[in-house]
Amino acid sequence: MALDKQTVYKISRLARIHVDKVDIDRYASQLSTILEFVEQMNRIDTDNVAPLSHPQDRLLRMRADSVTEHDRRDDLQSVAPMIENGLYLVPKVIE
């Protein structure tokens, strides 16, 4: 499956990764090569095969409903790029 520029642009938007115009072709060809490579999967018929998303098909373990975490805001925000009054600051969100 060869990707065209528009598709690469769409993926880069979805993935929130800026791609410079000059690099789009390079990405298109590299991604296409990888996709062609993985499409070898189609050599094998997988009809009626159940997908496996966790090794050993394990089941979920659940925890009791108790509060075990307490305020560590200063600690956790010591690594934040931009904060004010305990809030994380980001460019204006427009709804």
Binding site: V38, M41, N42, I44, T46, V49, A50, P51, L52, S53
Partner: peptide, 10 residues
Amino acid sequence: KAQKLRRLIT
């Protein structure tokens, strides 16, 4: 497709 192949490999 990959998840199904994953089961076959397993």
